[in-house]
């Protein structure tokens, strides 16, 4: 395989489909070798949302579902830059966001965790990177919550992020964690990422972006992969 062929998922930092620690993968991971398709127009492109009209409060999860009062919890502002692997900023890329509330409870009706819902917090939003690839959104710091993977399993606090980039090969859904969370060490989903990649999932506290008397700042930079550059070479 040539050097060019290594532009797909970088398995030094990406998780595998099958991970014994994360039990749900056992029945859902593809088991056969992936096929490298002939290059196509469709795969070299992807949906672009540059013209999508982001709602005025879409980027502010502390306000976009208020019914009577502000949601409970620690207000935070998350920001960063989205680039490709060459470090080039990716402007006007859509970022979709969803998370649990400060008590560790999701609005989703399947979530039965015995923690309160917050009537003033939905836990979803979206934002777009600007002309320089930068993004920012406001939310409430999510709580940890238990799950059924193994005895006494708890997910560390995390925010789900979904990004498109310029082609369907750059599509990414990930989770952003918080610094110094003692639960990360025990979490099979976090630890399914090779050690080299784990720090890339942890945001850093950012005093410079902390807004005085208002919200704590966290920085989370995101790198989207490029296209696989070797159509058919291995066939």
């Amino acid at each position: 395989m040539s050097e060019m062929a290594q532009q797909g998922f970088d398995m030094e930092v990406q998780p595998s489909y099958l991970d014994k620690g994360y039990k749900s993968t056992l029945l859902r991971a593809p088991s056969r070798a992936l096929v490298l398709p002939k290059k196509s127009l469709s795969e070299s492109t992807g949906p672009l949302f540059k013209d999508f009209e982001i709602g005025a409060l879409d980027h502010d999860l502390t306000k976009n579902a208020i019914k009577v009062a502000e949601p409970l919890g620690e207000r935070i502002v998350v920001h960063g830059i989205v680039t490709n692997e060459k470090g080039q900023p990716l402007p006007y890329t859509l970022i979709e966001i969803w998370q649990a509330n400060s008590a560790g409870r999701y609005v989703h009706k399947v979530d039965q965790h015995d923690a309160p819902l917050d009537p003033n917090f939905l836990g979803t939003g979206r934002c777009m990177t600007d002309a320089n690839g930068k993004y920012r959104f406001y939310t409430i710091k999510p709580g940890a919550y238990p799950w059924g993977n193994h005895y006494n399993a708890w997910r560390p606090a995390h925010i789900h992020l979904s990004l498109f980039g310029g082609a369907i090969s750059s599509r990414l859904i990930t989770q952003m964690y918080f610094p110094n969370d003692p639960l990360c060490k025990y979490d099979p989903i976090f630890n399914a990422v090779p050690a080299k990649g784990r720090d890339l999932l942890v945001s850093t506290f950012d005093l410079d972006h902390t807004e005085p008397s208002f919200a704590l700042g966290y920085r989370f930079d995101i790198v989207l992969r490029g296209e696989n550059a070797t159509p058919f070479e291995n066939l």
């Binding site: 998922f9 692997e85 649990a100 789900h160 990414l172 990930t174």
Partner: peptide
């Protein structure tokens, strides 16, 4: 630059990614 690692979408994506289909107000 190293790619940001992928993580699972998890079971609770519906109100964020497919809210209309699942009847969420977003």
């Amino acid at each position: 630059k190293l790619q940001t690692p992928s993580q699972t979408i998890g079971p609770y994506f519906a109100y964020g990614l497919t809210p209309g289909q699942y009847g969420y107000n977003f």
